[in-house]
Design a protein around this nucleic acid. Structure first.
Lengths: 262, 262
DNA sequence: TAGTGGTCTAGACCACATA
DNA sequence: ATGTGGTCTAGACCACTAC
């Protein structure tokens, strides 16, 4: 007699070449997909699945670890294994750096947070001068030292991205950009006041699994990749005036862009 | 006596709260980061690590599974566990749909492949009519049925992305777009010939872990996320004339965009 | 206290790769 | 034939959660 709700999960196929733990993962995945287990709902416990399938506990745990790697479920010690709810997603629109936002004294993050309806926050702000990495130096045009602004962004208390801005010293040193609070409209507004009228931004996007550091900083669940975005800001003279390196929790973002057809 | 090259890996800290298998993973990760094990190089075998650390085999395997989930290493049955080499990356430039490319009779994929220096190929092409999904219908403006073109792209024999294009039947039916080979410049060139002069494209980008289907289709290694891109093409009348849903192996791509500052 | 997942052991047999 | 990773068992003890 199974202890599980009838019909939730099937039997194993002993004639199949597919490993037992994969068959179990397949059945759980399929049950989740069918809505048999909903978001946030608890899956059967390891002990229940051991009994239901007649396998050892490690085999069941192996199945769970597959689903965890896929980002489908997450385990809570002492409570159970749950279907991972999808967090609300922030949409980054391609006009998020438009001048009319800056002129209203609003930073890009606040503009986006409003659109998402969440409560935004910034923490672990660090501003200092340091040696430029080869990547940053290449993008900024062979500068040796840069002003760095590091910060982490949170939405409703959840860390969603952290970023580092790099600016050439001859532009930023001794200006409000080097202050903890650069003032309304953020550093892009200050750059324009300093005579660097912005022309366009280049953005490069990659996706990959996070490093252990990134898992900590963003409190990432297993199976959640990061989006790595590197933006370079150019002024109307064609000079690169800032590089911003951003790592985002991929389950919290949709990036939107508009491409010309011409 | 350790069987490992001296200095490659340290000892465990029995006083640490950190689980043994995590400590082992940390040491291997750090050794890889330091270049002690290089791309493509074989790590010590499970048996060697069992001996070196004095732990059971499952503990060592647990460590490997962490690194595999991070996309750092991959196992080859009967051979060993290797540091994952980074594949060559294709850069998708923001002008990849520019008209001057189409007018040279070149499809976007070929333009990009040239830039990456790889040998491009397309397979599993399917063209048919089907019911529009709610998502596609919402983007195309409440159409019921659509023409679908599905295909997979390969570079040097490796699958790197697969895509499905959806077009309203009143636009595409009975035209070269419904043929297996739509001709030089691809379907965007045909759309323009049919009087739908293209104005711009909207692209939405997400990153996530792949489904088992996607792992199969793209032959993805463990620990490799996918980039999910949905592009909508608009003509100069403001009508959405095509939706293209693309899933890309994240380790094979960098996406580049240009944002206006105004 | 009972139930849950987290870690770890010490085996076993198998399939694949290399020589 | 040997060494490699792949799968699986049947336990053990621990830490966390809920009652």
């Amino acid at each position: 007699m199974s202890v599980l709700p009838s019909g939730a999960l099937g039997d194993l196929d002993p004639t199949s070449d597919r490993a037992v733990f994969r068959q179990i993962a397949d059945q759980l995945r399929e049950a989740i997909g069918r809505g048999r287990f909903r978001e946030g709902e608890k899956l059967p416990s390891e002990a229940e699945l051991v009994e239901h399938y007649g396998v050892s506990r490690m085999t069941v745990r192996n199945s769970f670890s597959i689903l965890q790697g896929e980002g489908l479920v997450h385990a809570e010690h002492g409570k159970g294994v749950f279907v991972r709810p999808r967090p609300p997603v922030r949409r980054l629109a391609s006009d998020r750096f438009a001048r009319h936002h800056r002129e209203q004294g609003r930073s890009a993050f606040l503009v986006e947070a409003d659109a998402a309806g969440g409560r935004p926050a910034v923490d672990s702000l660090v501003v200092k001068e340091e040696k430029a990495s080869p990547e940053v130096s290449a993008r900024l045009g062979a500068v040796r030292r840069v002003l760095v602004r590091r910060r982490r962004y949170l939405l409703d208390g959840r860390p969603v991205e952290f970023a580092a801005s790099y600016l050439p010293l001859d532009i930023a040193r001794g200006t409000p950009i080097a202050e903890a609070d650069p003032g309304p409209g953020g550093i892009y507004a200050r750059l324009e006041e300093l005579g660097h009228r912005l022309d366009h931004f280049d953005e490069e996007i990659r996706a990959r699994m996070p490093s252990p550091d990134e898992v900590r900083t963003l409190r990432l669940a297993p199976g959640v990749p990061v989006i790595h975005l590197v933006r370079t800001a150019f002024d109307t003279d064609g000079r690169a005036v800032e590089v911003c390196d951003t790592v985002m929790a991929a389950d919290a973002y949709v990036l939107a862009y508009q491409l010309p057809a011409t």
